[in-house]
Write a protein that binds this DNA or RNA. Structure first.
Lengths: 390, 390
DNA sequence: TAATGTTTGTAAATCCATTAAACAAACTTA
DNA sequence: TAAGTTTGTTTAATGGATTTACAAACATTA
């Protein structure tokens, strides 16, 4: 209870409401905003003028009359600034620049082994420097940098633990902010993916959704009432280590029969090794074999699809989300996984929560995390005040 | 975005802040409230006076001086009104009256077979009438009625589906409101239990907690950031039907190897039937046998404890709550279940999320749901506006 | 073409909760 | 007794939103 109510707060609330309408329903007139929000025309006028002054909105000329004076239409100025999003993978760094609506204007990807912290930081900084040179001219320049990481972060921008990189306790936000003097946001790769899909992908209309990133392992990003749920200590979404076979094979995490031992890239490759004699097994190989109609390989995918469904049912029954989005590397095989996944889903889930559930594969593909990182930066830029009133 | 900012809102926010301080830190002086909240003394004075006028706070005389004028101490007037909470079980109706702080002042329980809707409604109304006669005199009288039900409700106060009662689509809120003219809140029994423990029990200091009600089946109430999470269509918490054995025994829900087939009252009884020759197996019998040191019966409890742990690990890994509270009938056997539950928990959970997790058995016992129901009523009374600002 | 009514956006006056500053009362300490 | 502190109220100022009024721009209709 630090924040109290005063006139300043009132203005921030209303200004963010007006901006919200301009961002989401533009082109829109002052009169229409007043009508929709319940604010008076005078208030809207005053706030819109401030937004015009700060270049966040533009007037783009008159619109259609509906029997009276023509309205002056307002447009969100999506190029008032740009966001830099980075997906820091285990063996690559991917970066994009988007405008304030999340449209990609620059993209960059480099293969790099990031397991040595010092080298990774050098590469990361070089990448950021490169992107900063590519940013178009604008009023605000880069409004923030968002970074998705394959690990757990606390709320203060420190990486606590990144198992696949071997990093612990890296104050990444601080390091990058000090280097570039720009606001930085750090979060988990699955969380970033969830936000990316929520803002720019398959989840735009859902308030409660779970994004499941199926790669080497399984991670999840959980969005509740439109907001990311990070868990009490940032560890929500380790759902790959949910056991679906209590006496199953032991996992390195301590548990037995973990979901990701049945339904992940690793699970797929391990099963493939028992069938194929090839040395190098990877996604491309398996996909091409499946395309060719190799029945044993198709069976592999079907089996993984089945187990995907088993875990998804558990999420549905515990969480009752509106939407489940499946992303990550394995989502590339969506077409092969879908039938058996839906089959085990139909057979196993409770009818009521199933009824309203939508389940989709990622729309943004490998870009969901990096776009989510951009969204973090944009949100921080706008969310000087985020207010919810019930 | 219906609610906009105006002076009215500012006042509501600040008034609820002041009331919050009086409710939680009384006895407290105006000066201390001003200091803690950041509001000016003048504002606090004005708002406090309104609260005094509406009988929600009282002055109880001067306190200790700290080197100046003695402060006038304020107390929350917990007896300004009363809440009626009802736990509508499958074969009982339990009701309590509490003051505005949740202290029980009247209690009532009746055995009744509620599976026939009409009969249950008659009994429920009779119960409410009975309790209304027992309410102490007060300014506001009964401020609301909260009802916990063994089923799913939508947000509008209708019971959608109550499998163990055989009810579907009962507009219970409307029925009771029309009969008594008092605000009514309906929610699931596990949700009510979660709120009860959060407000008055083991969860008072936790923001993110999961209450697991282990009875005939397993249900859960999920509290995120201090607020109940109901899922997108009210079905969150059907976590008893999370599979912990993907190829396990089929459950009537369609899934296989559901958690509640391994770790519930039913699971316990079924296992007991294979051991004991007695006709009537119930909790009391098993508990007394275990007390007597019957090794086979003790093993039964230990086994259930183990499987409780298996499911709890899944919740921890997916949700990362601060606190897990185990309630319901089976919590009565907490002493017997705890060792094996903790054992499977220690062995199976990821170290990081486990680190900060607390796990407890219910403090309120069989009263958690009925007290949560009271809390619903009290919250509705106060939550004319609930505001959160970030 | 003129009259009428509608819609849009701005301007001026008013409202009202908070803040800031001043103050009186009550109390402790030296 | 004098000086300093703390509490809580009073008073005026502040700055948002609202209300009311109004001018400009436009469509419709006669």
């Amino acid at each position: 209870m630090k924040q109290t109510g005063d006139l300043n707060l009132v203005k921030k609330i209303n200004k963010s409401i007006v901006l919200h309408y301009i961002r989401n329903y533009s082109p829109i007139s002052r009169a229409r905003i007043a009508e929709q929000t319940g604010l008076t025309k005078a208030t809207v006028s005053s706030l819109v003028n401030e937004l015009l002054e700060s270049s966040l909105a533009n007037e783009i000329g008159t619109g259609e009359s509906s029997g009276g004076r023509k309205p002056m239409m307002l447009l969100f100025n999506r190029t008032a600034g740009y966001a830099l999003g980075i997906d820091l993978g285990v063996n690559y760094i991917r970066a994009v620049i988007t405008d304030l609506e999340g449209t990609i204007v620059e993209e960059y990807k480099v293969q790099h082994d990031n397991t040595v912290l010092e080298l990774a930081l050098v590469e990361l900084k070089a990448c950021i420097r490169e992107m900063m040179q590519r940013v178009p001219e604008s009023v605000y320049g880069i409004v923030g940098i968002g970074i998705g990481i394959p690990g757990i972060s606390n709320g203060q921008g420190d990486i606590l633990f990144a198992p696949n990189l071997g990093w612990t306790h890296v104050p990444l936000q601080q390091i990058i902010e000090e280097e570039f003097g720009i606001a930085v946001v750090i979060d988990n790769e699955a969380n970033a993916g969830a936000v990316g899909e929520k803002e720019f992908g398959a989840g735009r209309d859902a308030a409660d959704l779970v994004y499941i990133s199926v790669g080497i392992g399984i991670g999840a990003g959980i969005i509740i009432k439109g907001e990311l749920f990070r868990g009490s200590s940032g560890f929500s979404g380790e759902i790959g280590h949910m056991s679906i076979q209590h006496d199953g094979k032991p996992c390195r995490c301590g548990n037995a029969g973990c979901w990701e031992m049945y339904a992940s890239e690793n699970a797929l490759y391990e099963a493939a090794r028992n069938i194929l004699n090839t040395q190098k097994i990877d996604m491309e190989l398996l996909l091409t074999l499946a395309e060719k109609g190799e029945p044993a390989v198709i069976k592999l995918f079907e089996r993984v699809g089945h187990f995907l469904g088993v875990g998804v049912v558990n999420i549905i029954n515990g969480f009752n989300p509106e939407l489940i989005i499946i992303g990550g590397r394995l989502a590339e095989a969506g077409r092969l996984l879908r039938p058996t996944m839906l089959q085990s889903l139909e057979g196993r889930s409770l009818p009521y929560p199933r009824e309203r559930l939508q389940i989709e594969f990622s729309q943004l593909g490998s870009r969901s995390a990096v776009l989510g990182a951009c969204s973090f930066a944009i949100s921080k830029f706008f969310a000087s005040t985020k207010v919810s009133v019930e």
